[in-house]
């Protein structure tokens, strides 16, 4: 079972919700941090990292001995990542989407592939929770290939909690696609609501059931709740603003460990999600 925690707007509490739910459930879960641009979950789960893998994506390598400068590679590339200028083949690795088109089209077999470093994947554990995160290399522009790599490591036998990146475009899609449930975290402010609407549209497009956590539920206004009702989006948990929670968070400590009453609430949140997924699979 895969639960992806997303939000649209950044800073609403995705990492807080996902890590606390994982800690509340304990060893039956695995955690994938797919916010590879700014991974933060390890700061709260504090896993022991056992190993690290470098991740690369294929980019073309041209053998100039074989190249006849026919320009077919440059013609097929939609991303302008390879061009032929006189007796030179220029490759722009950062523009390459690794589609393999140039290699397939080259009549001389002059193109092979080498790798561009995307970043790394860390494997670890904490209290029996299996932990994996992706960490994009600084200067790398494309996060989806690394996110997809992290996603592919999910263990189907486990409950997988995914911390997704903010936004509504390709990185978020990579983190949500194929999930059984998307848990959306928002705050009841005009910015929170505006971006939540975008996130809800994205989830609808993917056809995944979803529910809402309203964080800092007593700031701002009530519009988020009205919207949730109109959209029949179940509000599964509300967390009022408390300075002590904000302070605990700022220090990298977890809510369920500091305030035991919250452990039960996060377990309950998970059971509500489980019920929705179950109902959906029986009606489908």
């Amino acid at each position: 079972m895969i639960i992806s925690v997303a939000s649209g707007k950044g800073g609403t509490g995705k990492t807080t919700i996902s890590t606390n739910m994982a800690l509340a459930l304990g060893s039956e879960v695995e955690f994938l941090d797919c916010d590879v641009e700014e991974p933060n979950a390890h700061l709260f789960l504090k896993p022991v990292i056992e190993r690290t893998e470098q991740v690369t994506t294929p980019i073309p390598l041209v053998d100039l001995e074989k190249c006849t400068y026919c320009r077919k590679c440059s013609a097929i590339c939609r991303f302008n990542a390879i061009t032929v200028v006189g007796r030179k083949v220029l490759i722009f690795p950062e523009l390459c989407h690794s589609c393999g088109g140039c290699m397939a089209v080259c009549p001389e077999g002059a193109i092979t592939e080498t790798g561009r470093e995307l970043g790394e994947i860390n494997f670890g554990a904490r209290n029996g929770i299996r932990f994996i995160n992706g960490r994009m290399r600084i200067g790398e522009a494309m996060s989806p290939p690394l996110i997809k790599r992290v996603r592919s490591l999910a263990d189907p036998a486990k409950v997988t909690i995914i911390d997704a990146p903010p936004g509504t475009s390709c990185p978020v899609i990579a983190a949500m696609n194929g999930a059984d449930f998307v848990l959306m975290v928002t705050e009841p402010t005009p910015f929170g609501l505006h971006d939540l609407k975008l996130a809800v549209e994205t989830v609808k497009l993917l056809g995944i059931p979803s529910g809402l956590v309203v964080n800092r539920s007593d700031i701002g206004d009530r519009e988020v709740f009205a919207y949730a009702e109109r959209e029949q989006l179940p509000v599964l948990l509300t967390i009022p603003f408390e300075r002590r929670i904000a302070e605990v968070y700022s220090q990298g400590r977890s809510i369920v460990e500091e305030f035991p009453e919250w452990k039960e609430r996060f377990c309950e949140l998970f059971h509500k999600i489980e019920t929705i997924i179950h109902e959906r699979s029986t009606t489908a």
Binding site: G11, T15, E37, E38, N40, L43, F44, I138, G139, Y249, S250, Q251, G252
Partner: peptide, 20 residues
């Protein structure tokens, strides 16, 4: 923001700024 996440992410963005 003065949180563990804030300082962690700032360091990466500062490195990005230096990179470019």
């Amino acid at each position: 923001e003065p949180t563990v996440s804030g300082i962690h992410d700032m360091e990466r963005v500062v490195e990005l700024a230096a990179h470019f």
